[in-house]
Simulated assay, not measured.
Amino acid sequence: MSRYRPPSAPSAPYITPQGRDKLMTELRYLCDDLRPEVTKALGEAAAEGDRSENAEYIYRKKQIREIDRRIRYLVKRLEVVKCVDQRPADQSKVFFGAWVELQDLDTGSTARYRLVGADEIDLDAGWISVDSPVARALLKKQEGDDVVVERPKGEVIYEISRVQYDPFE
């Protein structure tokens, strides 16, 4: 059996100002604080002698590779993303950055989501990717509209009860 997986579709190149600031803060931390600290520890481990059996040296080399990989990713991603810092002209409809409150018509339960970029997903806070099936179903809809979302378990019908571009209280 093959392990081949077709490449996934590229994520939307949008990000909120808070998400961009978070990525830039992480990049600064990796470059200015963590990498020099790990490099110093690597030098100390290398000075201990035989590198082929030095677990500390091998671990630090691996750690440097992982840090460098993340730095490369962040630099490339920050070049590509477009920061969406303005609200849409029609704020009654769901677009990127919107806070949406949904009511499940079958169970009556309520869910609150914010549509954000792929780099900002936080399920505990209710931040979902604009590329997710729920977000794609919500785009360009407004309060009172019914939305059908296809899920692996079957489809679910939600009613949009609130749309706003400020966080819910």
Rank of each mutant, 00 (worst) to 15 (best):
residue 100 V to Y: 03
residue 61 K to E: 13
residue 36 P to G: 11
residue 24 M to I: 12
residue 56 E to K: 15
residue 56 E to A: 15
residue 119 D to S: 09
residue 66 E to N: 15
residue 71 I to F: 02
residue 87 R to P: 02
residue 118 A to R: 02
residue 51 R to W: 04
residue 124 D to P: 00
residue 5 R to K: 14
residue 141 K to E: 09
residue 142 Q to K: 14
residue 25 T to R: 10
residue 149 V to W: 04
residue 89 A to F: 09
residue 85 D to Q: 12
residue 119 D to C: 06
residue 101 E to Y: 08
residue 145 D to R: 09
residue 161 S to M: 12
residue 77 R to H: 15
residue 52 S to H: 12
residue 151 R to T: 15
residue 20 R to Q: 14
residue 55 A to I: 05
residue 109 S to M: 11
residue 78 L to F: 10
residue 1 M to L: 12
residue 39 T to Y: 01
residue 65 R to C: 11
residue 86 Q to I: 13
residue 57 Y to H: 09
residue 58 I to K: 13
residue 68 D to H: 11
residue 64 I to K: 09
residue 147 V to Q: 02
residue 103 Q to R: 13
residue 141 K to V: 04
residue 138 L to P: 07
residue 136 R to P: 00
residue 56 E to W: 09
residue 14 Y to H: 10
residue 125 A to M: 08
residue 109 S to W: 05
residue 148 V to H: 04
residue 62 K to M: 08
residue 161 S to W: 05
residue 5 R to M: 13
residue 122 D to L: 05
residue 134 V to M: 06
residue 103 Q to N: 04
residue 55 A to F: 08
residue 65 R to L: 13
residue 72 R to Q: 10
residue 155 E to T: 14
residue 41 A to Q: 05
residue 112 R to I: 01
residue 22 K to M: 06
residue 35 R to F: 00
residue 143 E to A: 04
residue 92 S to E: 14
residue 7 P to K: 07
residue 122 D to P: 12
residue 83 C to W: 00
residue 93 K to T: 04
residue 131 D to Y: 08
residue 109 S to Y: 12
residue 51 R to D: 00
residue 45 A to T: 02
residue 103 Q to K: 14
residue 69 R to G: 15
residue 98 A to E: 01
residue 165 Y to G: 08
residue 120 E to M: 05
residue 1 M to E: 09
residue 110 T to V: 15
residue 76 K to H: 06
residue 123 L to Y: 14
residue 68 D to K: 11
residue 154 G to H: 05
residue 85 D to W: 10
residue 35 R to M: 02
residue 162 R to H: 14
residue 68 D to Y: 04
residue 53 E to W: 07
residue 52 S to F: 13
residue 62 K to E: 15
residue 38 V to P: 02
residue 31 C to F: 00
residue 83 C to P: 04
residue 79 E to H: 12
residue 28 R to T: 03
residue 1 M to Q: 13
residue 96 F to T: 09
residue 5 R to F: 11
residue 93 K to P: 01
residue 71 I to C: 02
residue 117 G to F: 10
residue 19 G to I: 08
residue 116 V to N: 06
residue 17 P to I: 06
residue 138 L to G: 04
residue 95 F to Q: 14
residue 84 V to E: 08
residue 54 N to T: 10
residue 35 R to I: 00
residue 140 K to A: 09
residue 169 E to F: 12
residue 147 V to L: 03
residue 169 E to A: 15
residue 17 P to R: 04
residue 40 K to D: 10
residue 145 D to Y: 05
residue 5 R to S: 13
residue 100 V to Q: 06
residue 130 V to Q: 07
residue 41 A to Y: 00
residue 6 P to V: 15
residue 66 E to I: 10
residue 82 K to G: 08
residue 105 L to C: 11
residue 22 K to Y: 00
residue 33 D to Y: 01
residue 137 A to N: 01
residue 144 G to L: 07
residue 122 D to M: 03
residue 77 R to P: 09
residue 108 G to Y: 02
residue 159 E to T: 13
